[in-house]
């Protein structure tokens, strides 16, 4: 998560612009399909171009594409449940796969990967704090942005503490990994995991109270000050925002739903 996945300097768009583009793109992707497959083709091409402009590492993006796959795998049921002309029957289970179901699944899968990829491209092109600056620039409540910033800061700390505690507990059992091999025999492991989580909570709460004190010690009084350099919109930003806003309209006019 930390750092950018860039291979060379990319287009210096304001993070707010990136947010607007991602959201409009996803709306457009949802509208595309049906009778306008060209819309999905066009959006795919646009995504490649934007990824090139933002100079992201496609290898890193593609490595993460497994994330929506389990949901898509579960969604394969729609090829059986969508009414329509039978394409073939799955032998052994006698389940008819319909033509309409097949096309629907293909369309959904395409949209899911487009939407996932645009978010990955956009949000991996900037550092996390810049992404949050974009949120703040879009007038998301400052308290929520502040909470997200603190959470991001302490993610690595607490995940690290959790993993170290798990490692320590595992070492004391003599096993390579703590897992349920046979539930009846290993039910006691729930207590181990519960203690691990409970301990992590106590440490997190103590840490939270200390961080609160550290913030107070440096003058924090609950006001969330805007971060400097919110930045003006450049011509490139306005160009990108205009394109983003037009995308769903183009899809709709072209026969999307």
């Amino acid at each position: 998560m930390r750092g950018t996945a860039r291979v060379r300097p990319g287009l210096p768009l304001h993070p707010r612009t990136l947010w607007i583009f991602a959201l409009c793109y996803i709306v457009a992707a949802n509208l595309a399909g049906g009778s306008s497959w060209w819309g999905l083709v066009g959006l795919s091409f646009l995504l490649v171009v934007v990824g090139w402009m933002l100079s992201i590492s496609w290898r890193k993006v593609l490595r993460g594409m497994w994330i929506p796959t389990p949901f898509l795998a579960a969604g394969v049921a729609m090829v059986f449940t969508t009414p329509g002309d039978v394409w073939f029957v799955v032998p052994g289970v006698d389940l008819p796969v319909t033509v309409q179901g097949g096309w629907k699944y293909l369309e959904i899968a395409w949209k899911v990967y487009l939407c996932w990829t645009v978010a990955a491209v956009v949000f991996q092109s900037r550092r996390p704090e810049e992404i949050l600056q974009g949120l703040a620039a879009l007038r998301v409540p400052a308290a929520l942005v502040g909470i997200l910033a603190v959470m991001l800061r302490y993610l690595e700390v607490l995940v690290g503490e959790g993993r170290r505690t798990l490692r320590a507990k595992t070492a004391r059992t003599g096993r390579a990994r703590l897992g349920f091999r046979r539930l009846s025999r290993d039910a006691w492991l729930f207590r181990v995991y519960g203690a691990l989580v409970g301990n992590l909570f106590l440490r997190a709460l103590a840490r939270a109270q200390r961080v609160h004190l550290a913030m107070l010690a440096r003058g924090y009084d609950g006001r969330l000050l805007p971060s400097p350099g919110e930045g003006r919109m450049t011509e490139q930003d306005w160009g990108m925002v205009s394109l983003a806003v037009l995308l769903p309209l183009i899809i709709l006019l072209g026969g999307g739903r």
């Binding site: 996390p128 603190v150 800061r153 302490y154 840490r207 200390r210 961080v211 550290a214």
Partner: peptide
């Protein structure tokens, strides 16, 4: 503070 992670609560 003793633990610098308590004191360094910003992203950079």
């Amino acid at each position: 503070f003793q633990d610098p992670d308590d004191q360094l609560f910003c992203s950079t």
